[in-house]
């Protein structure tokens, strides 16, 4: 039986072509979330959150700890299910799909975990090759090796392919995680605290890398961060969350011009 995901993706080619055109010229979002709610026990983490991101655009999501920023990314990639609301990729709602049905959508997304989450029994090179081994089974080994070399070169780790994750620094682990996230050439990049726990120089390197990747790959990106400097550097738009909702969304200048007390307080401490 054809999976629901495949069915929805293959129906109405005219509509999907028109949508592709709209996404390309930025009129339609590649990814949108609408009225998301999520509770853990009695604690409501997301309370009607809505957000969208266009192709080639980066949005930084900021907010206090525990306001559901990482939960938002986990819901988008399907690692957590929302209590209600929609997550649309290319206009198709993926909330509530099963693991296998989500597969086709997940291949379009790259996810950088907060602690990189590299497979500790594999070398850096094998980590980057992992998605290719599973989703590009027909790819020749030489082609795969070249692709891994190219990805590692993009993040400046071409000489570290044979090292184990435990033998490299936190910043290098994040870069390796980023290379792995890019392996399947995603259209959407989700970054969870890409600069957390790094020194200012390593943070700057990650920011530069994200900017370079955006220029070269034209992806839609959502960056969850506490680092206002990083957010200003890499994002076109910033969204501040409070009590599970977006309080304000716009450029850094829009945020600075805001009269909202929480936003002013947040910026003054950032």
């Amino acid at each position: 039986m054809q999976s629901l995901a495949t069915q929805t993706m293959t129906t109405s080619p005219d509509i999907s072509t028109r949508r592709d055109q709209l996404e390309l010229d930025g009129s339609a979002p590649v990814l949108s979330v609408t009225n998301l709610t999520k509770s853990f026990g009695n604690r409501k983490v997301l309370n009607g959150l809505s957000l969208s991101v266009n192709r080639g655009e980066t949005i930084a999501v900021l907010g206090r700890s525990g306001t559901g920023k990482s939960v938002l990314l986990r819901i988008i990639i399907g690692l957590a299910k929302p209590d209600s609301g929609e997550v649309c990729i290319h206009g198709q709602n993926i909330a509530g799909l099963s693991m296998d049905q989500l597969g086709e959508f997940r291949k379009k997304m790259g996810f950088l975990f907060q602690h990189a989450a590299l497979y500790d029994s594999l070398t850096v090179g094998e980590n980057v090759a992992f998605p290719l081994d599973h989703h590009r089974r027909g790819m020749a080994q030489s082609e795969k090796t070249e692709r891994v070399r190219q990805l590692l070169s993009e993040v400046g780790l071409e000489r570290d392919a044979g090292k184990m994750p435990s033998d490299i620094s936190g910043g290098m682990q994040k870069r390796a995680g980023l290379a792995r996230a890019l392996a399947l050439e995603p259209e959407i990049l989700l970054l969870d605290e890409p600069t957390a726990g790094l020194d200012p120089i390593s943070s700057g390197e990650i920011d530069d890398l994200v900017l370079k990747l955006q220029r070269e790959h034209n992806m839609a990106s959502i960056v969850v961060t506490h680092d206002m400097y990083s957010a200003k550097t890499i994002a076109n738009r910033l969204a501040i969350l409070d009590k599970g909702q977006v309080v304000i969304e716009g450029t850094f200048k829009d945020l600075q011009a805001s009269n909202i007390e929480f936003v002013q307080e947040f910026l003054s401490h950032a």
Partner: peptide, 20 residues
Amino acid sequence: ASMKVTEQIDAIEASAINPY
């Protein structure tokens, strides 16, 4: 268990691979 607490199983799932 070690893979679970270090989010490696989530990373497998996020890569569109069924960890089961």
